[in-house]
Amino acid sequence: MSNPIYARVRQNPKFHDLVRRRSRLALTLSAIVLVSYYAFMMVVAFAPQVLRAPLGEDSALSVGFPIGAAIIVVSWLLTGVYSHFANGVFEELNDQITRESQP
């Protein structure tokens, strides 16, 4: 009852390679974003003085600002990393798999 094209894809080792590598990338990047965000939130809740420390000798800005901004900027850059690989090497692999699945 399974679609023959899908069955052929499943027999292609490249497909399993693609799934493994792309999932590993997605999960690693998700973990980086979630762990750093929730670690940050826990510092906010339990150790706020860490973020209150001034940036420099005579500075009004606290270290919390660059850290917060870094969470936004770095997690955006990670979307760039994912798109770069998923739309680059993985997409090529995907195209190969699609071609090879045709009867």
């Binding site: 998700s30 974003v33 979630l34 965000y37 940050f40 997690s75 955006w76 994912y82």
Partner: peptide, 12 residues
Amino acid sequence: ISFFVGWPIILF
């Protein structure tokens, strides 16, 4: 920041 971090997760 909390309103932002959902987006990378949506992508991944």
